[in-house]
Amino acid sequence: MSTREARSAPDLDATASRRLDELVQELADDPRRISTIFPAVARRVARGPADPDDPDGVKRPRLEDQARTALLAALASMWADDPERFTHELAQLYRYGDADEKRAVLRALSALDTGAGMSAVSLPLVEDALRTNDVRLVAAAMGPYGARHLDPDSWRQGVLKCLFVGVPLDAVAELGARADTELARMVADYCRERAAAGRSMPADAWRVLDRFGELGRDLRTAGTAPGVSGTEAATTGRET
C-alpha cells in the first residue's frame, strides 16, 4: 500500500490493504472504471466500523469509507492534469451513490480539498446531505470539510439538525471553534419548544448551551432534564 493510501485508510488490516491495492491497480489500468469499482468496495475490500464503540462511523470513518477515500485520492492523482474530469466524476459518484457511497464521498472531501474548483462541486454535495434526514449523511456532512466551508447560517442549521435527528455532536468537527451566540440561541429555542411539548431535550444541547450560560439559564432553572434525543424523525424518515 502506498503512503498516500495508508494515510487515507489507516485501519485496514493486511488482507484488506492487499485487496485495496488490487482495486487501485484496476483503476490505474482504466480510471473510468471508478463508476463500478467504487460501489463494490465494501464487499471487495472491507466493511465495518474502525472503532467498535462507533458502529456508524460518526467519529472515525468506517473501513469501507477509508478504502473509498483512498480510491478517490488515487483517482485524483491519476487525473491530476484534468481536475474538472475528477470533480465531475466525484459528483456523479455522489449522485448515483447509495447512502453508503454518498457517505464515503462526503467523508473523503476533506482529503481531496484542493481549491476553489473543488469547492464549486463538493459544497453542493454537503448541502444536499444536510437536506436529508439520514443520520449517516448528516453526520458526514458536518465533518471537517463542512466545518471548513459551510457558511455560518448553513453550519448552524446543520448543528441544529444533528440535535433534531439524533446525530451526536461528536460528529461535528470544530464545534468548539465555530459555535457562537446565534447557535446557542437557536439551540435554546429548540429546547424550549421541546419542553413546551413535554418532551426531553437532547443531552448534547448542553455542549453548546454550557458555553453561553445566559442563553440556557431558564432551561436549567425550569428543571428541564437532559434526556434522550428526539430521534423519531431519523428512524421513520417521515419528517421533512
Binding site: S35, T36, I37, F38, P39, A40, R43, Y96, D98, E101
Partner: peptide, 10 residues
C-alpha cells in the same frame, strides 16, 4: 447508467 447500479451491494 445501468452499470453503475449493477455494481451495488444488494
Amino acid at each position: 447508467v445501468l452499470p453503475r447500479y449493477l455494481a451495488k451491494d444488494g
